Amino acid sequence: MATENVTAVESSASNETSLGPDGNVVAMLAYFFAPVCGVLVYALEEQNGFARYHAAQSIVFGLLVIAAYVGLWTISFVISMLVGEVPIIGFLLSILVGIIDAVITLVVWLAAFLVWLYLVAKAYQGEAVSLPLVTAIAEKHLL
């Protein structure tokens, strides 16, 4: 997003919204239960560009986190099924794959949670944050 567009989006953070509260509050609420609340705010908010910007980011961020989880689960399931067929060693390898999967999943969820907290805090502070992949997708398809 160009610098002047970010400034324009941030300037509407404290403006009123068609939903009632200030733009920063609506933007913050868009991240809760992402992407569901993001879709609600995006669909219902017509007046405040800041809230719509964060709602679009919430939708994309939530969908990417869900896709990451499904991808990790699928990879783990396929590997476990493949190595589980090998007698004795396969059982041990499937346990190892399960442990590795649990660690990777924990790291991904922790990272996603920290990014989510950052986005919520910045939305409440009235700042338009630009995440590399998330913002590009949101701007291309939703804004």
Rank of each mutant, 00 (worst) to 15 (best):
Y31I: 10
Y31P: 06
F33N: 10
F33R: 05
A34V: 11
A34D: 01
P35E: 10
P35H: 10
V36G: 01
V36F: 14
V36M: 06
G38R: 06
G38C: 11
V39M: 12
V39K: 12
V39G: 07
L40F: 15
L40Q: 12
V41I: 11
V41W: 07
Y42Q: 05
L44K: 12
L44A: 14
E45P: 11
E46M: 12
Q47P: 07
N48T: 09
G49E: 15
F50C: 05
F50A: 05
F50Q: 04
F50W: 08
R52D: 00
Y53H: 09
A55S: 13
A55Y: 09
A56C: 01
A56S: 09
A56T: 03
Q57S: 03
Q57I: 06
S58N: 07
I59W: 04
I59N: 08
I59H: 04
V60D: 04
V60I: 14
G62V: 02
L63D: 09
L64G: 11
I66Q: 08
A67V: 13
A68L: 15
A68E: 13
Y69V: 14
V70P: 04
V70H: 00
G71T: 01
G71E: 03
G71I: 02
L72C: 07
L72Q: 14
L72F: 12
W73M: 15
T74H: 05
T74W: 12
I75C: 11
S76V: 07
F77S: 09
I79T: 08
M81Y: 13
M81F: 15
V83A: 02
V83K: 02
E85P: 00
V86F: 07
V86N: 02
P87T: 04
P87F: 00
P87Y: 03
I88N: 14
I88Q: 14
I88H: 10
G90S: 06
F91K: 09
F91P: 02
L92K: 06
L92I: 13
L93F: 07
I95T: 10
L96V: 13
L96S: 09
V97C: 08
V97D: 06
V97T: 05
V97W: 07
I99N: 05
A102H: 01
V103T: 09
V103P: 06
V103L: 11
I104Q: 05
I104F: 03
I104G: 05
T105E: 12
L106K: 09
L106Y: 14
V108D: 05
V108T: 08
V108N: 03
W109F: 15
L110P: 03
A111H: 09
A112N: 13
A112L: 12
F113E: 10
F113G: 09
L114E: 02
L114S: 04
L114Y: 02
L114F: 11
V115L: 12
W116V: 11
W116Y: 02
W116N: 04
L117T: 04
Y118G: 00
Y118E: 10
A121H: 06
A121T: 13
K122H: 10
A123L: 06
Y124A: 05
G126T: 07
E127I: 07
A128L: 03
A128W: 07
A128M: 00
V129P: 06
V129Y: 08
L131E: 02
L131Q: 09
P132Y: 05
L133P: 13
V134P: 01
T135P: 04
A136I: 09
A136E: 15
I137N: 12
I137G: 01
E139K: 14
E139D: 14
E139L: 11
E139P: 12
